[in-house]
Amino acid sequence: MAEKDNSHQQVIWDQFLSGNKEAFAALYNLHAEAMFRYGTKLCSDRELVKDAMQEIFIEVFLKRHRLKTTAGHFRYYLLLALKRSVIKKLESGRRQLPREEKERYFEVSYSIEKSIIDQEEEAERNRKVAELLNTLPAGQKEALYLRFNEALDYPEIAEILHITVESVRKQVYRALTSIREKWGTSPPLAWILTLFLSW
């Protein structure tokens, strides 16, 4: 199935490269929401994020023949471009902030999911985990977000975060270890996470 899916993506990509605006719209449609989701975590100003998206898509269409990306990596390409553009816009807007603070910004909040099957104890644990996730350092949050919410692979995340692939793994590992600690002694879940982490 994945292969079929890819060939379909490839058809759209090829048509986009040849200047077909329907295909361009299809690509926009496919990625705009993810870009907006990611962008609004880098910066709370919705309009700034949309401006950045606008510039990126215009650029992508006009310079489509010189794009250094492929159909399969386009999502990553767009997110990286978005991050650069948002940071640039923020920097020109708030020069007074120390560099440290500018680069560390990544605002994510995790929901405390309510499930019918959740026992009270489980709900309490969920709340703790959400709390913990919300207090993770920006870098770890961003790594987790890109890995699990946007399904990027480790080398792509490394590129976006400007760190090595090994550090990305470490960030994700650290975050998940803290989750496990917060989870306390729930045997099945602790067991899963142990497995997962040693994998």
């Binding site: 929401e33 907006f36 989701r37 609004t40 975590k41 919705r46 994510v108 909040s109 995790y110 929901s111 999911e113 969920n126 985990v129 959400a130 996730l133 987790l144 977000y145 699990f148 919410n149 989750i179």
Partner: peptide
Amino acid sequence: KLRTVDQE
């Protein structure tokens, strides 16, 4: 558990 709250 890793689902974030997103701005749509």
